[in-house]
Amino acid sequence: MKLMINGQTQELDIAPDMPLLWALRDHAHLTGTKFGCGLAQCGACTVHVDGQPTRACVTPVSAVEGKQITTIEGASQSSKVTQALQAAWLANNVPQCGYCQSGQLMSATALLSQNPKPTDDEINSFMAGNICRCATYQSIKTAIKQAAASLA
């Protein structure tokens, strides 16, 4: 199976029903994308497929063949929005355990790409799919607004 991951084509020996999450983690060895629930409930596995935030845990690889898949590893290198968010994450000491943060950053990247100046309510509704058990929500909100300002 051929997948376009972070701008590169990778040939992986996997079944078509395998969720993208496990193709990325176990086969492409990109472990920044996390497993949290396997049920599209927590957002830890968020990646972008053709720029759209997607829950990799419930997306079979057959559905993303020929599409551009971007993970936290790729976005860290190529996305100005992700980089601005990362700078704001650093400035606000956002992560605690850190396990949800790749997913938070990928969702936030999608948010700012679609809506460069989100209000608090817009942040709340867009980011509500990403659980953080450490409850870093307050600093996530601050950091998103800071990143938005820095990109403006």
Binding site: T31, F35, P95
Partner: peptide, 21 residues
Amino acid sequence: LQRVDIMGKVNGTAQFTQDVQ
């Protein structure tokens, strides 16, 4: 002070058990 564990936690490189290969 910046958290000492922060860099890998914003770029996906922090190693959790789940990531051991």
